[in-house]
Simulated assay, not measured.
Amino acid sequence: MTTTRLPLFPLNTVLFPGLVLPLNVFEARYRALLRDLLDLPEGEPRPFGVIAIRDGHEVAPRGTGLPDETDEAPQDPTAGFGPDPMRSFYEVGCVADASTIRPRQVAGEAEEPKDPDERVASYEVLATGTTRFRLLSVDSSGPYLVGEIEPLEERSGEGAGALASGVLLAFRRYQKALAGANERTLGPAQELPDDPAVVSYLVAAATVLHTADKQRLLQAPDTATRLAEELRMLRQEASLISKLPSVPGAEYTIRPTSLN
């Protein structure tokens, strides 16, 4: 088994391969992570691991890795995740490549800081999901969490091509139900990919689902299994929406499910 170490960015969401992730990063520990990524040679990948937080496990708002403009004190990298971060995270995550990292400077400083990094208030990041990984352990000895990870190969599985066609049709009906539209008003269909793995990830990202549902799709053992689960979910969601008196908001379509 080949493993590697990767900086971790925990979030209350699931990132899929091929999908774009915009971030606005304020927290000290994640600013340190991004500074280290910026130190990598120009033109090389700047990878970090996005891992979803299990429902109910974060114990502080800043545990999500989202902005906290008021917190400038040195921070424990495990803050918000308890003494054993592994228990707070799902097992499978996605490697993200930070193609764009833009620092935003502190405004209105009376004196120039001795350390140029002190002038960076936040970073605007644009990253793209690349490959899945399994999280094996977490190192909290540095300024931010670092995971020992095992890359996961994407396997096709039996009948992935036929399942992808069915999922695209079901996704089209699901979009119509959400839009409250019929075939005459929906307009021409958008061009969608042919690759079953790409279809599986795009549909997983675009469907309104609870984080636990999306996580189950991310960690499916192969593309065919993921597509079969999506087909079931899409039919279920479209049926639910069609029985409601009006087009639902997210609160009607998000329902927690167990991974067990």
Rank of each mutant, 00 (worst) to 15 (best):
M86L: 15
E109G: 03
M233E: 14
P193C: 08
V203L: 12
L178C: 13
V208C: 07
H57W: 11
Y201I: 00
S141I: 00
L40E: 08
G161Y: 05
L19C: 14
P83G: 06
L234S: 09
E251D: 14
L38P: 04
L40Y: 05
S242W: 02
P113C: 02
L259D: 04
D97Y: 02
S141D: 15
G18F: 02
R255Y: 02
R184N: 07
A181C: 12
R119P: 02
D68M: 13
P77M: 11
A32W: 00
Y201A: 06
V208T: 08
T100I: 12
T78A: 15
E112M: 12
M1A: 12
R216C: 07
S165G: 12
G142E: 14
T64P: 06
F9D: 04
Q190H: 04
G249E: 09
E150R: 08
D76Q: 07
A32N: 10
L11C: 10
T3M: 03
N12I: 02
D117N: 14
G56A: 04
V203D: 07
Y90R: 08
D84S: 10
L178G: 04
E42N: 13
V14L: 11
Y252T: 02
S200M: 05
L218H: 11
E150G: 00
K214T: 01
L23N: 07
G56Q: 04
T130L: 11
S156Q: 15
T211V: 15
T2K: 11
D55E: 15
A206Q: 10
A228Y: 00
F133A: 04
G161M: 03
E237I: 07
P17V: 09
P47A: 03
R46V: 00
T225N: 04
D194L: 10
L240H: 12
F81C: 08
L21A: 10
F133Q: 05
S99Y: 07
